[in-house]
């Protein structure tokens, strides 16, 4: 058995997939491409596919990663990538395969860069971002079925920017992933929208880059066992 890291984009209609739906899309793409995926042990075997960093519903991702264990009969990476691209749905596009080896790669995200457009008065949005930069701490209380958790967004959301547009502004920010977790992109965007007194609905949230720990060189970066489109 061999582990592959599949890089792919999620965009267009694929933005609106949940994390589980995205995993299902990747799994089904492998099945349609005729590339056998290894199965887990037990009563109900599952394909050995994992997406290490969920992408929020509504967001596009330009460089997402799936770890996939394939059986020895799987084709070579170049042929596999061609087959996967032909078999993928419109909103999910495989862009590269890195052959890792027998060891599960277990990629850990270090940070992820996002951009997002907010509609409304550009000046107010820019001011809200400037206020964020100026604040020493920005405490956010996250309420979930698991309970309440207070986190300082400043610990997690860094390198923030705001670029004025005709109708609103484009936010740029980096979410840092720490041992105790990370902020959600929506939490930062909601905060800026609240401070700027604009509609909180975000459009065009895009994850442009993820910095990983424990991942071999990416396709196209000169690695000998990688292929990319």
């Amino acid at each position: 058995m061999t582990w592959w890291l599949l890089t792919f984009t999620r965009g267009g209609s694929g933005r609106y997939l949940s994390h589980l739906d995205t995993a299902r899309a990747v799994q089904r793409t492998f099945a349609r491409a005729g590339i056998p995926v290894a199965l887990s042990q037990g009563m109900r075997p599952k394909p050995r596919i994992s997406l290490p960093l969920p992408l929020p519903v509504g967001a596009a991702g330009l460089r997402e990663i799936a770890a996939v264990e394939v059986v020895p009969e799987a084709p070579a990476a170049a042929a596999a990538l061609r087959a996967l691209r032909a078999a993928a749905p419109p909103g999910v596009e495989p862009t590269g395969i890195t052959v890792v080896g027998e060891q599960h790669p277990r990629p850990q995200p270090m940070s992820a860069e996002y951009v997002c457009e907010l509609g409304g008065d550009a000046g107010s949005i820019v001011s809200a971002v400037e206020r964020y930069v100026a604040e020493e701490e920005v405490i956010h209380e996250r309420v979930s079925p698991k309970g309440r958790r207070r986190l300082d967004l400043k610990d997690y959301v860094v390198e923030v920017s705001a670029e004025p547009l005709d109708d609103g502004a484009r936010l740029g920010f980096t979410v840092v992933h720490r041992a105790d977790g990370a902020a959600r992109p929506q939490e930062y965007v909601d905060l800026i929208a609240r401070w700027a007194e604009v509609e909180p609905a975000m459009c065009g949230l895009e994850r442009r880059h993820i910095t990983w720990q424990g991942v071999p060189p990416a396709p196209g970066a000169g690695a000998g066992r990688s292929v990319s489109s």
């Binding site: 596009a60 330009l62 419109p90 909103g91 999910v92 065009g204």
Partner: peptide, 9 residues
């Protein structure tokens, strides 16, 4: 036209 991965926005 839906799809167009990579051309987000």
């Amino acid at each position: 036209v839906p799809g167009s991965p990579g051309r987000c926005g």
